[in-house]
């Protein structure tokens, strides 16, 4: 596979996952707002904080008005991580490598982009209840995954997209968990209160993990939720699960069937994955949840750089020509 194409497929996977996660974040926050006591309504700042774009937001906007936050996260093209930015770039990547995608995958990605355009034209962020829009976008992205799942051959291209998707998802799960760190409780004594409970529940719902969590752990307990979202071996949105899948993808790509590592990217992900594999939730809390998650995010960024230098970096054809002469 061409290095340039592999790069585009990897980022197609990342951008789609990013957009889908944003749609989830917003949907869940909306639900949460409805359950909060009157004086605590409208907490939109934690959402921005979780995306890591708080500074950028404050550069353009003063307060955390709902409509403004929704616009920033969904349509603001000055926000490189907004859903519109991510979907535009996903579509641009898809357009560049259209010859490598199935016709349906391209058409659905193109439609996704047209849906965003339509949403922008209709000023969805001003609607009293914009949730149907986010639901639609989320479903369209899931449709693209579904089509890919049942129509794409499990060769290199597939693994590069999956790799992008799982690296992105690991990052996003770590960030959604971090929201809890940013959400304000009225006072310290509220830890463990019904309000606290509501927060954790919303968090689980945003990753479609509420029912699964219930079945495994029963009652809501912060330690268990952290364990579930960071270390669980079977839940497809836990950080460990994502890292494990991403590692499998890397091994498929390089043909490494013997374990260990064949290149720096495999080494980095192997180390991070085993760190989580042998971690206990108590250690994470002792270390500090926010710090622990921050650390994971930094390592994921480094991993993405290593994937880039291992597979996507192109030689300048002028230079190689000169060396030959």
């Amino acid at each position: 596979m061409l290095s340039r194409v592999a790069n585009n497929i990897y980022w197609l996977g990342r951008y789609l996952e990013r957009a889908e996660n944003y749609a989830r974040f917003i949907d869940v926050n909306f639900n949460l707002m409805q359950d909060l006591p009157m004086d605590l309504k409208e907490q939109w700042q934690p959402l921005i904080a979780a995306t890591g774009d708080l500074q950028l937001y404050q550069h353009s906007y003063k307060d955390f008005d709902k409509n403004q936050v929704l616009f920033f996260l969904t349509f603001d093209q000055n926000n490189p991580n907004s859903m519109f930015s991510a979907i535009s770039r996903a579509r641009e990547n898809a357009r560049i490598i259209r010859e490598n995608l199935s016709k349906e995958t391209w058409e659905k990605s193109n439609q996704l982009y047209l849906m965003m355009q339509e949403g922008e034209a209709k000023k969805v962020w001003k609607k009293a209840d914009p949730r149907p829009f986010y639901e639609k976008i989320k479903n369209q992205i899931l449709l693209i995954y579904g089509i890919a799942d049942s129509s794409v051959a499990r060769v290199e291209g597939w693994y590069f997209r999956q790799l992008g998707q799982f690296v992105e998802r690991a990052d996003k799960t770590s960030r959604i968990l971090d929201v809890k760190y940013h959400i304000l409780l009225p006072s310290g004594s509220d830890v463990g209160s019904p309000l606290d409970f509501l927060h954790w529940m919303a968090l689980l719902k945003s990753v479609t993990g509420f029912n699964t969590y219930r079945r495994i752990y029963g009652n809501i307990n912060p330690l268990n939720v952290v364990e579930f979202l960071v270390l669980n071996k079977y839940f497809p949105r836990s950080i460990y699960f994502c890292l494990n899948e991403a590692e499998v993808c890397l091994h498929h790509i390089s043909g490494n069937l013997g374990g260990g590592f064949k290149n720096p990217a495999e080494k980095a992900i192997g180390e991070l994955r085993s760190q989580l594999e042998f971690a206990e939730v108590g250690e994470i809390i002792d270390y500090g949840l926010h710090e622990y998650l921050d650390n994971i995010q930094i390592k994921l960024n480094k991993l993405s750089d290593l994937i880039d230098s291992t597979y996507f970096r192109l030689q300048d054809n002028f230079i190689s020509q000169n060396q030959n002469q």
Binding site: R4, E156, L314, N317
Partner: peptide
């Protein structure tokens, strides 16, 4: 589908840069 930057020439042969 290749672009100029995907290709390079060595010993009068043309190569694609792949993964």
């Amino acid at each position: 589908l290749v672009t100029g930057i995907d290709l390079l020439v060595k010993d009068k042969k043309v190569y694609m840069q792949t993964t």
